[in-house]
């Protein structure tokens, strides 16, 4: 306990660092998944192959990638940028299929309606397709966020600081309390990020607030289960 009271400043700074390390890949991965998802839907028959190739990135073990990437792009191995790039790639690998599916499942009637009003394709994308695909994308993004927060900790094995540092240090000192503190705080960071995403979702998509019924709730759960299985 004296460890906690003497080290809380450091622990708090690790938590903030962890949050920052998680946030950037989730956001960048999401933004990049939009053009990729759109592109996949334009591929016709090649769609499933395209999506499978992007998803295969996720299959590469993070520790191996952390070691292999610096030599490929010329960064130093301890540079947190490596971790950011890798986690972005993972987020992209998980999110592209969701974005592609979400954009495709948008009600044709809504699109026909917009087109018949004479909307340009670009405007159509941003005012109709994207907002209507939003709820599905959000539930996908929440899965991505949770897995990213957990993956950040692997960086501590090669010396990139995050809450994962509590695991390696706690292990070396045989201090299980330090590890448990790390686990709890990691879950807390995931919870905060999840809450943030849900909050932003409600702000940007006010119409989903009106019908937070059993139906939308269960569709989020379904999406989560599906991604859980497909990830």
């Amino acid at each position: 306990m004296s460890w906690l009271s003497s080290q809380w400043m450091w622990i708090a700074s690790l938590a903030v660092l962890h949050f920052r390390l998680s946030l950037i890949p989730v956001l960048v991965g999401f933004l990049l998944s939009l053009p990729l998802g759109w592109l996949a839907n334009r591929c016709g028959r090649g769609r499933s192959v395209f999506l499978a190739v992007v998803a295969a990135i996720y299959a590469i073990p993070s520790l191996s990638l952390l070691i292999a990437l610096p030599s490929a792009i010329g960064t130093r191995i301890l540079d947190p940028l490596n971790l950011e790039i890798i986690l972005t790639l993972y987020a992209l690998a998980l999110m592209t299929r969701t974005s592609a599916d979400a954009l495709r499942q948008v009600d044709r009637q809504a699109i026909d309606g917009a087109q018949s009003m004479g909307m340009s394709p670009v405007r159509l994308f941003f005012t109709v397709r994207l907002p209507l695909a939003g709820p599905v994308m959000l539930s996908g993004l929440r899965v991505v966020a949770a897995s990213t927060v957990s993956l950040v900790t692997v960086g501590s094995l090669i010396g990139i600081d995050s809450l994962g540092t509590l695991f390696t240090e706690g292990y070396q000192r045989s201090y299980i309390f330090e590890i448990m503190t790390g686990v709890v705080l990691t879950l807390l960071v995931a919870l905060v990020l999840d809450g943030l995403l849900v909050g932003i979702g409600k702000l940007l998509m006010p119409w989903t607030r009106l019908k937070t019924t059993h139906h939308t709730q269960s569709s989020h759960l379904d999406r989560t289960a599906e991604m859980e299985a497909m990830a």
Partner: peptide, 16 residues
């Protein structure tokens, strides 16, 4: 349960 498990850090579980 499965949703929460996703955020559980592997390394933390392993070391603990």
């Amino acid at each position: 349960f499965t949703g929460g498990m996703r955020a559980l850090p592997t390394l933390g579980l392993l070391t603990a």
